[in-house]
Simulated assay, not measured.
Amino acid sequence: MLRLDPAPATMPPGERLYAIGDIHGCATRLAALHARIAEDFSARPVERATLLHLGDYIDKGEDSAGVLSFLSDHRRPEGLEAVFLTGNHEAAMLAALAGGAGDVADWLWCGGRPTLASYALDPGAGPATWAGALPAGHLAFLRGLRRTHRAGGYFFTHAGVRPGVALEQQSAEDLIRIRQPFLSSEARHGAVVVHGHTARAEPEVRHNRINLDTAAWSGGPLTCGVFEGDRLGFIFG
């Protein structure tokens, strides 16, 4: 049985949200985690359930193509609504595919080479060749990603928020890339921010934020936070 501990915010009655941290090409582990989420949902039905992914589906790990195939084919546990947020790695990939020389170099440096390898594409071939070879469904998925999601007392986004700025006024860049001063801030942001982007050995739960990036691509677990009522639990893949 899933252990549920007191949480720093609450979800509306009858709702549960499963939120998965940074995946980074770990396709097999993503499928296994989805299966564990399905088992929990089957064992503990609820009126409304949402499965949210916090972004950074690609790069670093060995099977980014497999992750995008799995997600773009809408494979998810039956009965769960799906929400997909964007991360900085998706933004970097789309910028590189648009062809800017600096954007190409940045993406290859930050983890794009393993992504291209997962499609059997040559890093030296260039963005026009890459874009033409990528599945249309994968590109449509990447271009349709959202930046934020609200549920109860929680605000979900990839990287975090800038302290002192209203949630509805956050910049697109901060939402997918910020670290400091967000990570060290003790400020209340108007909601508890649930994020990834900054890898830790285990989930971080603080009064104003929850971090679900546990470095799956480099040997840590793939983490799903389970939010319901005034409780919080974790499922690992």
Rank of each mutant, 00 (worst) to 15 (best):
L4M: 15
A7Y: 13
P8V: 06
A9K: 07
T10K: 13
T10Y: 00
E15F: 07
I20W: 01
A27N: 09
A27Y: 11
R29H: 12
L30C: 10
A31M: 08
D40K: 05
A43D: 14
P45D: 09
T50F: 01
H53F: 15
H53Y: 15
G55F: 08
Y57W: 06
E62R: 12
S64Q: 14
S69Q: 14
H74D: 14
A82L: 13
N88D: 15
H89D: 06
E90V: 01
A92C: 13
L94N: 01
G102R: 09
R113A: 14
P114A: 07
L116M: 06
L116R: 02
A117V: 10
S118A: 04
A128N: 03
A128R: 14
L134P: 02
P135Q: 02
L139D: 03
T148N: 09
G153T: 09
G153N: 12
F155P: 00
F156K: 02
F156Y: 14
F156P: 05
T157P: 01
T157F: 06
P163W: 02
G164V: 08
V165D: 12
L167Q: 14
Q170S: 14
L175N: 00
L183E: 12
E186F: 08
A191Y: 00
V193T: 03
G196P: 01
A199N: 11
E202Q: 15
E202N: 08
R206H: 11
N208V: 01
R209G: 05
L212H: 04
T214S: 07
W217T: 05
W217P: 01
G225M: 13
G225E: 12
G225Q: 11
V226A: 04
E228D: 11
D230H: 03
L232V: 09
